[in-house]
Design a protein around this nucleic acid. Sequence first.
RNA 1: GGAGAGAUGCCGGAGUGGUCGAACGGGGCGGUCUCGAAAACCGUUGUGCUCUUCGGGGCACCGAGGGUUCGAAUCCCUCUCUCUCCGCCA
Length: 426
Amino acid sequence: MLTIQFIRDNRDIILERLEIKNFKQPGLIDTIISTDDNRRSLQVKTNELQAELNRLSKEIGMLFKKGEKEKGNEVREQTTGLKKELESLEKELQEATLKLNELLVLVPNIPHPSVPPGKSEADNRLIREGGTMPDLHQGALPHWDLGDRYNLIDFDLGVKITGAGFPVYRGKGAQLQRALIAWFLDENTTAGYEEILPPLLVNEASGFGTGQLPDKEGQMYHVTGDNLYLIPTAEVPVTNIYRDVIMKAEELPVKNTAYTPCFRREAGSYGKDVRGLNRVHQFDKVEIVQIQHPENSYDALEEMVKHVEQLVIRLGLPYRIVQLCGGDLGFTSALTYDFEVYAAAQKKWLEVSSVSNFESYQANRLKLRFRETGEKRPMLTHTLNGSALALPRILAAILENNQTPEGIRVPEVLHKYMRSGSEIIN
RNA sequence: GGAGAGAUGCCGGAGUGGUCGAACGGGGCGGUCUCGAAAACCGUUGUGCUCUUCGGGGCACCGAGGGUUCGAAUCCCUCUCUCUCCGCCA
């Protein structure tokens, strides 16, 4: 969330910038400011009263120590009225603070100046594209049929043991999956990211820290018995490592990568795009996360984009990078680049990575700060993350694009992770 | 799952009703000494909110939330977590 100080200092700019995100609620911003005004005046009154009460209490202590009981009791009587007053003030203050926080989380992050206006993905800006479109043979199949034919992915079995959207990978399909994970992790590590293997279940505080709670609660699987949530992305446990942390400036940047399965309920998203691996409830993803000095976060974003681009290129997939327009940009993001790869049999662009700079929006929620050497006050860091990469759609594109009448060619970079003889799936 | 112990600052650890934001030790930072370093010595060392004449002042925070009290790190209640032993278990 944005800091209250920032909102107070930049009311007009924020309103103007948020229009890009199609967010037009001047009323909300003004309510926030007046709520804060109220909170502040209550704070002052409460503090004054507390100071007075503290003073009297000390006096009572002294008087009793000196043996002046009567005088002590006299002063004690003065406190009763003050206490009552203080009690109601404290309650008001608490309510105002609570209300302020509820309102603050309703304000989205302000978009970067480069974000194009727009309502939907149709207005996203194409940054660049690469790779070559495959020329498929007659009778080429979409990946769900290929998965079936070569016994790689069994969707029906997943329905049997869990439900729709929980595919079972088997044989060379499972191997390919494992190869992709290993290769992504190795590449990310080579690029300087520390590998993390985090828990797949997180508590409420972590859900709140990265913004899934309270607003996107319905998107996560909730383990009610222990009040834990299955992670929708590794971003949640990994970023929460740094919740309530104050780092030294020289410890920045932090670069982490993590493979995890991801669990998403995807409530309400049924339709034509959900076929096969295009949208599932459980999938594997390798994530990259950076915690950066504010001055360097946009350089880091570019670096992350280049890194992800290399992965896609080396897998030999046709791809394009788009910058999300205001309307498509996530609530917490300032700038997001999406990577899409082309799945040639179903003739569709599939989103496989989303690389974002959250600036200090997420850090403020997390209370993730750093201190410049010699500085007294800690400052919020910037946080960034991206997929590098999400597996199912990559797998779908590989299967579809690399199919030949003789079988499916496994990209060369994955060969060393496959059992020998598995370079071609037939 | 059963029994017990505990949760204090960057770390260790004291503190069981009043001047305790917190002894002492370690670490960090600054300084003296030194060609430099070590040692020794001196100083300093949390976060948030808030007011400010920008010197500084006030308030809150000792796992979390309530309560008792003029006054709570300290007493009471609830919750969470950690550790030890037993049981179970990959």
